[in-house]
Nucleic acid binder design. Structure first.
Lengths: 380, 380
DNA sequence: GTCAAATAATTCAACCAATAAACAAATCTT
DNA sequence: AAGATTTGTTTATTGGTTGAATTATTTGAC
């Protein structure tokens, strides 16, 4: 019948008075969290558009719930009563970030201030049976230490190098040899989310520096994956399988790829291809090699991504992070040639290096609290 | 300082009581608009989660503002007082959709029920000076006719085959020979938005049929563009230049493209390439031709898009729309080979054919009203 | 044919949360 | 020491939703 008006863009849920408070609690909490320095109630009111009295009431709730704390007033500027500074509480909820990869498992705890409180890494081949229960033990240890600090772990997120479907099901993780492994949505009573390693690594960059609203995080490992952040939030795709850029065709007559096609990106910029081209055996040795071939292939593939999505920032992570200086020229040249709009692209190395996925996982948990502090406060 | 929590995902604006009403008005209006049949206040309450009394109050406002009307009750089912049916009003706000292309200009008026009320098309080369003022006259005529029907034109949107920046500036429209043309944000006192033709055409598909939340609209014309709809809303990119898929590399040793690279998609599936390959001179004759080369190239490029964005629906528009049957096999084969996740992809022809961009433009205006009915009601 | 049951829609008192304005607190300026 | 200035709290008011009671209108049963 009526075609043209499209699907609703207003969220499906009704707004009641409760939702107003929930929204404004999140607004106040995030305003404090995104401020570099301690910030006063009055400044929060100014930044959000809420009145000072409303902010005071909301802040009272947030302090009572250990989401904010008052700190000593910032150095004062002029006349007037000195402000009480607000900061995210260092002793409230914390995020438990987990990662499992081919040759290590890891867990970390990050508090609301963004501080890494604990970091546990265990090397070793994870392609064995029992890897998951070892990870569970590691997670329990990290949680125990966090709770000894007075933190309350709000949830856990696990980064996996593979395709993850809803409900914590790993459809396939080729390098781990996993297929249709159900990890579930709970870990020792803690809510658990499982997500692709590149997606969570991309989240770790959100909030770093100048906050680009949209960017692509490219994760170079054995395969090549991408985390796509659009307008400030991670885009996961219909089934959660976005960002598979490893098989963008570079040259139809190129080398045969394990996927069956010829000349995929992975055959030029994948870990093994780069090692082979450079004639070395370890990733560390790549720092001294000529990476023009890989850089050009990456630039070609990223041109397609930029032409399609019009993003202006690309973050290189995984094995690429320490190699950005050597890759930049070839990538820039190719993007300059192929991106029609001539947009300048900012290319930068991942901030957290090998910890990116784990840090992003912990950050994802904390995001949940920041986006719904009312739900956190209402927990029994 | 505090890194990991990321940018706020809660909208920056505070919610006050006004916003509650504004949101719920939109919720009720959209619930009615998205219902195939007339729907009762009670059903709206059930669907939205609001109470019947709240819905009644909101509906009163919407009816008073000519956004909804009561119609005869639907065939009743059992006992009880019969419901009064609600429908979008056919005599309220309307959207004015405009399009300018190489060889025609067009205007249409669509009302809130999705009905096309007027459609004006003028053939002729638009690459001349004065094309814009001719379009302005056509728009005025369409508006005049709509107002003679008792409609109130809420705004206008113009589809242009080129890159459009903020503020109604056409950065470049190669086939029109335009460069840095400022069209502005107003047309005879009406709010005007200017957007890429493929973007608006994509919007025309939103709300058709089973409402896929994410899809790609591919517009085949002289060049090839794409409109990207993710999670129910159009993704425009950082500068509004998303969807440039015409120059995805298909074969590094292929024919030289006007962009300077070799083997771009446009060289296989662009209008001129297809005509040349088929040995015909008009688009209509393509219906009888072998389109395997174009289909394979399209399939290769779309595989990249699907691997990157994990969308499950692709709509083929422009010159591709009537050719879907002949293109499908080659596209499907290529996607089947190259999309690693093995996801089934739905491929379908555009619903509105050559009117897609114009209809989408009108729809975009109506979307604005549907998303902010309170703003519409508050106009003086 | 009348009454009970069922469903739709409206009315009204209660409640929740934000607002605005007045007030209290703490510091700076002169 | 007095006034200016800014922060933070208190209190009455307002807007908007809720929930229960009420009215309206039909079907079905006796």
């Amino acid at each position: 019948m009526c075609h043209c008006q499209g699907v609703p863009s207003v969220s499906q849920a009704p707004i009641r008075q409760n939702s107003v408070r929930a929204h404004n609690l999140a607004l106040v909490l995030q305003t404090v969290a995104n401020s570099a320095d301690p910030i006063s109630r009055a400044s929060v009111a100014g930044a959000t558009g809420l009145t000072r009295s409303t902010v005071s009431a909301l802040v009272d709730d947030l302090i009572a719930g250990s989401l904010l704390t008052e700190v000593d007033p910032a150095p004062r500027t002029g006349a007037g009563r000195p402000a009480a500074g607000l900061r995210p509480a260092p002793d409230g909820p914390a995020g438990l970030g987990l990662e499992i990869n081919v040759d290590y498992r890891a867990a970390c705890v990050v508090d609301l201030t963004g501080t890494l409180r604990h970091r546990l890494v265990e090397a070793g081949d994870q392609r064995q049976a029992g890897a998951l229960s070892a990870l569970t033990r590691l997670a329990a240890l990290a949680r125990h230490r966090a709770e000894a600090d007075g933190l309350t772990v709000a949830g856990a997120a696990l980064a996996v190098p593979g395709l993850v479907a809803a409900g914590g099901v790993v459809r396939v993780a080729p390098n781990l040899g996993w297929q249709d492994i159900t990890i579930g949505t709970e870990l020792d009573g803690l809510p658990l989310t499982v997500d692709n390693e590149a997606n969570l690594a991309a989240l770790s960059e959100l909030g770093v520096g100048e906050l680009p609203p949209s960017f692509i995080y490219v994760s170079g490992e054995v395969g090549i994956g991408a985390g796509i952040v659009l307008d400030g939030s991670l885009y996961r795709g219909v089934r959660g399988w976005s960002g598979e850029i490893g098989h963008i065709p570079i040259d139809a007559s190129g080398p045969l790829c394990r996927c069956g096609a010829r000349g995929c990106l992975e055959q030029y910029a994948g870990q093994e291809a780069m090692l082979r081209a450079a004639g070395v055996t370890s990733v560390a040795e790549l720092a001294g090699a000529d990476l023009t071939i890989a850089g050009t292939a990456l630039g070609t593939a990223l041109s397609t991504v930029v032409n399609l999505l019009d993003v202006d920032t690309i973050v290189l992570g995984g094995i690429y992070a320490p190699l950005v200086a050597r890759l930049r020229d070839a990538i820039d040249a190719e993007i300059g040639r192929r991106v029609l709009t001539g947009s300048p692209i900012r290319l930068r190395a991942a901030t957290f290096g090998p910890d990116a996925a784990m840090r992003g996982a912990a950050g994802a948990v904390l995001q949940g609290v920041l986006n719904d502090p009312a739900g956190w406060l209402a927990r029994s």
